[in-house]
């Protein structure tokens, strides 16, 4: 009994992480989701499906008295063994809704509720906790940051929302226009994906990940100021169906790395803004419109230096 309790206590799910559906169904004892519940592209899900299929096959050939196989049912089959009231919908597992029981044997592809949730979640960005202040700039926790000052936020179902970080929006200042790629357009990590305009000048913004654009924030077309007032939430740029998510995320800054990157960028910006005197300051939050303050500096020069686009 004590052993079982100890084993249960080892299954702590860290804050911000979610159980894999294979763990939720009780097929495996411990596995966290690392693919944003995008099971069709999950290597682990494929491996488990194959393993279960093989073990099912071998069970038919097995001599009497052989030890039982460990994985003889998929997570869906395990879930379907539960009473109807225990079959949690995948949006209940991910915490996006309070309570919802799956009515359709986990065939999410044909589920109308799933379609509604997909549309709803794509239209509205997930809420962002109070951003952390780093060197006078805001950084949203749980986001991945590209060196060109764009962010990527993986969301449930495998899609990734992208936008500009607080450093970039302060650097660029009040924008007059934002140009989005067409839906279906293919983006490459580190290559120009979006354009922003100010006073007739254009700055190209790099995409933080590879993928296909599945939705753009149309509100930005009429209200580009949203990007300044809410860079991590209402000012998002687009939703991407990623094609190399795991590889791409490894090339982005996250957590403490993102903090260090922002601090270094702040130092670099300060040096560039005051290169005539080589000064250093103690104290100070950045102004809202850095470009507006540095009228003598070329906007294009700042864009090239910090957005790292040509």
């Amino acid at each position: 009994m004590a052993r079982a309790l100890r084993a249960e206590s080892m299954k702590i799910v860290p804050p911000g992480k979610k159980k894999c559906v294979w763990m939720e169904a009780g097929v495996v004892s411990y596995k966290l989701c690392d693919n944003n519940y995008d099971c069709p592209t999950c290597v682990y899900d494929h491996a488990m499906q194959t393993k279960v299929a093989r073990q099912k096959e071998s069970m038919e050939m097995k001599p009497v008295g052989a030890p039982p196989e460990k994985f003889t049912a998929t997570w869906v089959e395990k879930m379907m063994m539960l009473p109807a009231s225990g079959r949690k919908c995948r949006y209940m597992i991910t915490g996006e809704i309070g309570r919802k029981i799956c009515p359709s044997a986990y065939e999410c592809g044909t589920c109308s509720f799933d379609r509604m949730m997909q549309q709803r979640l794509q239209a509205e960005p997930l809420p962002v906790e109070t951003p952390t202040q780093v060197a006078g700039f805001e950084l949203a926790d749980g986001f991945y940051y590209h060196e060109g000052h764009t962010w990527a936020r993986p969301e449930y179902g495998g899609r990734v929302r992208v936008g500009l970080d607080d450093f970039a929006q302060r650097l660029l200042g009040k924008l007059s226009q934002i140009e989005m790629p067409n839906i279906g357009h293919e983006l490459k990590q580190g290559e120009a994906g979006f354009s922003v305009k100010r006073n007739g000048e254009t700055a190209r913004v790099l995409s933080p990940i590879d993928g296909i654009v599945s939705r753009v924030n149309e509100k930005l077309l009429d209200h580009p100021e949203l990007m300044n007032s809410s860079p991590y939430q209402d000012g998002w740029f687009a939703i991407i169906e990623p094609t190399k998510l795991r590889k791409n995320l490894k090339d982005l800054y996250y957590g403490e790395e993102a903090h260090t990157f922002t601090s270094d960028e702040r130092e670099r910006l300060f040096s560039m803004a005051n290169d005539d005197l080589n000064i250093a300051a103690d104290g100070g939050v950045s102004v809202e419109d850095i470009s507006g303050e540095l009228e003598e500096k070329e906007w294009g020069k700042l864009v090239k230096a910090f957005l790292r686009s040509k």
Binding site: L277, I279, A281, G283, S286
Partner: peptide, 22 residues
């Protein structure tokens, strides 16, 4: 006190220079 791009500063110095202000 302030410097361009920052809302305020507690102090400012020339790196490797002679003068500073707080």
């Amino acid at each position: 006190l302030f410097v361009p791009i920052l809302k305020y500063v507690f102090g400012l110095a020339q790196v490797g220079g002679q003068c500073s202000i707080i």
